[in-house]
Simulated assay, not measured.
Amino acid sequence: MSIHTPKNHQQCAICCRPFFNHHTAIQFILMSDGGVQGEIVPTEKVQGYQGVMQGGAITTLHDSAMTHCLFSRDVCAMTARLDVRFIKPIPLNTVIQVQAHCLKSKRGMYLLQSNIYVDGQCYSKAEAKFMQFLDNR
């Protein structure tokens, strides 16, 4: 099941256009546990050191996944804090999977986590706080 992107987010340079490669925008689906999942093949477009993704692009992928996890709950929110752990260099031209889950929410604040996997192994983890805003048109 795909996630509805609110109108006020449909011009996003990361989520709605090919950002991680030259061909496809990342698509997220709802998982049975309430989280979201997306797959993408990053290319030299997001290269940092030779053959691996740049750290800012990895951080962007986490942020995008967590944002879509909130969209799956009909919540529009902005990142308030984002902490990323880089475990292994993420290779280019390989299918990578990102998953995000909402851990808790209280009065318009949301705590989420995200993991990036290559061949089933976790290569990066992130945790973020998001703050809801009222305009979700």
Rank of each mutant, 00 (worst) to 15 (best):
M66H: 00
S124C: 07
L70T: 10
A126N: 03
S114D: 04
V118Q: 08
P42E: 00
M66L: 07
V36A: 06
L61H: 04
R17P: 01
D135H: 14
V95E: 14
T59S: 13
S105Y: 06
I14P: 01
Q97C: 12
G34S: 09
A126F: 09
V95A: 14
Q47S: 04
T24I: 14
I90R: 01
I58E: 02
A80I: 07
H62G: 08
I87D: 08
E39L: 15
V84C: 08
S72P: 02
T5L: 13
I29A: 07
A126E: 02
T67A: 12
G56F: 07
F133E: 06
V98H: 02
I26R: 03
S64I: 13
M31D: 13
M53N: 05
L92F: 05
Q10R: 11
Q113E: 15
C102I: 09
S32R: 15
K7N: 08
N21K: 06
S64F: 05
L30A: 06
H23V: 10
L82S: 02
K106R: 15
I90K: 00
F20Y: 11
I116C: 02
E127Q: 12
Q113K: 15
P91V: 14
L30D: 07
G38A: 11
P91T: 10
Q50P: 02
Q47H: 03
V46S: 04
G48D: 04
H101W: 11
G120W: 11
H9C: 02
Q47N: 04
N8Y: 02
H4W: 01
V75I: 15
A25Q: 13
N8H: 06
T24E: 15
N21T: 09
T60C: 08
P89Y: 01
C16S: 09
H62S: 08
R137N: 07
N8K: 10
G48R: 01
P6H: 06
S2R: 11
A100H: 10
D33S: 07
K106E: 11
